[in-house]
Design a binder for these strands. Structure first.
Lengths: 163, 163
DNA sequence: CCAAATATGTTACATTATAACGTGTCTTGA
DNA sequence: TCAAGACACGTTATAATGTAACATATTTGG
């Protein structure tokens, strides 16, 4: 009980997440909700140990497995994504914001990491996915999951750099 | 001196690598050559600490920074790639095998990771790259480097599974 | 040859992640 | 209802991956 209260927008997204979980028989417990909230409130990808620090505000002495288990759950539900290049986690804008909140199967997603401001943008571009599927089918490879991450400069940071 | 002798095919690729380095003023030292050799001889992606064990056959007491520095060099030269999802390294088939051995600038590459046999196949598909560039340009993002990794089953493992 | 740059050795530590086992809580069906 | 199993969480310890910082050696260019 007594889970941290987040900003209203975050609470809305958490409620969405809770509905999504309920819809296919899994439970967004207080702990998981809190970890997801911490991820969503961060403007940038968050590392597991940053989340642990955040948790400890509530639960002194929390240990790594607590966070990693919550993250594993959230990943499986498709509520967050892991940015491999950063060993850090972001909320899934696709499932939590849009109206297209589907069953939490892992969907193809691409991440744009701005090396200027550190923000990560999630794309859901079918062209990229199809190009990948096409190329792999030609050599008989069957894709189950794909990781697409691009590093570069977002529009704002590029403009700031050329100014 | 007295760097390990690898299989003939590996030595050929190491010689290619050495030429590539010389061509733009960097040096493939004995140590770097040995680490690259260890990567190339492995049938699968190799972790840094596996490489360290391999190194220690020659140089007892070698420490992590030795391996990581060699890896950093090889990555910069484009002679190897890091598979982020595996925290492991593979030789770059593009620069080391083909005749298209260019200056070792990082080129766009995609990796297919077979969860059956653990082998990784490197693609160099322009369709994927262009799809990514197109999608990002639309939102004003400038890509400097991209990571594309797909997990799934290679043709052989898929056939074995359906049999 | 000498100085600067480059490469490597060495020690210590930071960061990320998981194994293993115990305890609590939920739920479900006899 | 309540016991049994499943599920979630707590706790301790440790594994795996990666770097900082500084000392030494090697190479290269003037």
């Amino acid at each position: 009980m007594a889970a941290t209260i987040f900003a209203e927008k975050t609470e809305t997204r958490l409620d969405n997440a809770e509905r999504l979980c309920a819809a296919h028989g899994s439970r967004l417990t207080d702990l998981r909700r809190q970890v997801l909230g911490l991820v969503l409130e961060a403007a940038r990808p968050v590392g597991a140990y940053d989340l642990l620090d955040g948790l400890r505000a509530d639960k002194k002495g929390a240990a790594p497995p607590t966070v990693y288990r919550a993250l594993d759950f959230l990943l499986e539900e498709g509520l967050i994504h892991k940015i491999e290049r950063l060993s850090a986690f972001v909320g899934c804008t696709h499932t939590l914001d849009g109206s297209h909140a589907e069953a939490g199967h892992p969907h193809a997603a691409q991440f744009l990491i701005c090396t200027g401001c550190g923000q990560v943008t999630e794309l859901d571009d079918h062209g990229i996915l199809h190009a990948l599927i096409d190329a792999t089918r030609q050599i008989g490879f069957t894709v189950h999951h794909s990781t697409v991450e691009a590093e570069g400069l977002c529009a704002a940071c590029r403009d700031a750099a050329t100014a």
